[in-house]
Amino acid sequence: MEVGVAKKARIVGASTLFFFFSLLLTAYSSRNPSVARVGSVLIQQLFAPFQRGAAQFTGGIGSVWDGYFWLVNVREENERLHALADRLRGENSKLREYSFENEELREVLGMREQTDLKLIVGDTIGYDVSQWSQVITLDRGATDGVSIGQAAIRPEGVVGQVISVSNSSARILLLTDPSSGLDALIQRSRARGVLVGKGGAITELEYVNKEDDVQVGDRVITSGMDGVFPKGIVVGTVRRVNSKGGNLFQRVYVEPTVDFSHIEKVSLVAGENAS
């Protein structure tokens, strides 16, 4: 299809307009995060039922895959036991899934009993569409008591923070996202800094004074000073320290304790239980 010069000019003109409009929108929404949230909540409302269904469906497929297809060769070698093995594999797969879920729930319940925190436990039903931002969707929303700003944790440590809520789902900004930040301490030396996501697997503890004692292997915990995360929750382990250069601060790289590639259950901190 021949695209005429006049048509090309119209396309370039319209693209330029839309491009600059997008930049204005970016600048405006960065100053007013609620604007982005309103639209996001609408999309969340629309997607939540599908995401929940899809999560259950893919969970089922995964269980069938684990319990059946990988063992096709074994089945061929044991044709006589075919029917019996199939049934047992199916049951075994189900039991493994129950056992895993049971173990996870026990951990969460254990965490609930160990702390005075009021927790809302939910399942991950969606991830961010792009790989540039680290956001997950949880199957708990405003009707379950979830609100913006609540801390998201797991028995291993901090997961992130709730950034938008619809009636039946919530979006959590993960610790590893570049827009994420929390006030943290080195547990051993009490050196303080701000833990910032870098978009990858490693986060950075910024604004740690050069004089502060930080060593590889030190545990990093929440300080509780940011008013979001309760004090003393594990965040990660120091993997690298760089105190060279003329800066006032040293660079401390922290590996989060939570495996962000496999998050299923997440607990949201809805307050503290009255003692």
Binding site: V3, F18, F19, T26, R37, G39, S40, L42, V129
Partner: peptide
């Protein structure tokens, strides 16, 4: 952008740029 819920605009601008460049050479 809306599905991410963080910023409105970066993906919209990126898509417009890609569309514009490709539509100009599409013939």
């Amino acid at each position: 952008d809306l599905s991410t819920g963080l910023l409105l605009g970066p993906w919209a601008a990126s898509f417009v740029v890609i569309y514009c460049v490709l539509s100009l050479v599409s013939d």
